[in-house]
């Protein structure tokens, strides 16, 4: 399967996950929100969100079992840059109430203008960052 076809098929699976979590449990599948909630929520909600995150982490391992190969990962930054990037992603996704899944997939699927504004902003700042990185480094 070429990369565009597997991208589309993988995307459809992500969309199916987002749809299932809403239809079955009534929840938005926003990864940054779910992960942040693990440290705050109590009771059943915490267990349910833990189950989702456990399934998410198991995903690449199950993929490796099925296909015989782990998904390709080519890192583009060293550890110091990854620390800075991680801090920005953690703080930014909480301040902006979502990331590529919550705003990008779930928000756009709900036709939310707020999510569209967030998506255009993080795509824009991401593209600007890479352009600067290419120009300077």
């Amino acid at each position: 399967m070429n990369t565009y076809a597997s991208g589309l098929a993988g995307g459809a699976l992500i969309g199916l996950s987002v749809a299932l979590l809403m239809l079955l449990n009534g929840r938005i599948a926003g990864i940054s929100g779910l992960v942040a909630g693990l440290g705050r929520d109590r009771g059943l909600r915490r267990w349910v969100d833990t189950a989702f995150v456990a399934g998410l982490i198991a995903g690449p391992a199950v993929f490796a079992l099925i296909t015989g190969a782990w998904p390709t990962m080519r890192f583009v930054a060293g550890l110091p840059i990854l620390v800075v990037a991680g801090l920005l992603v953690g703080f930014g996704t909480r301040l902006g109430s979502g990331c590529t899944s919550g705003h990008g997939v779930a928000g756009l699927a709900r036709l939310s203008p707020r999510s569209l504004a967030a998506v255009l902003t993080f795509l824009g700042s991401g593209m600007l960052t890479v352009a600067l990185l290419r120009a300077l480094v």
Binding site: A77, L88, G92, L95, A118, T121
Partner: peptide, 23 residues
């Protein structure tokens, strides 16, 4: 919303990683 998304985009661009794939 806009400030948070802008900060997130910078980290995303630097690393090529966002919360779902990273976790």
């Amino acid at each position: 919303l806009i400030g948070g998304a802008a900060l997130f985009g910078i980290g995303w661009g630097l690393s090529g990683l966002c919360p779902g794939p990273a976790v």
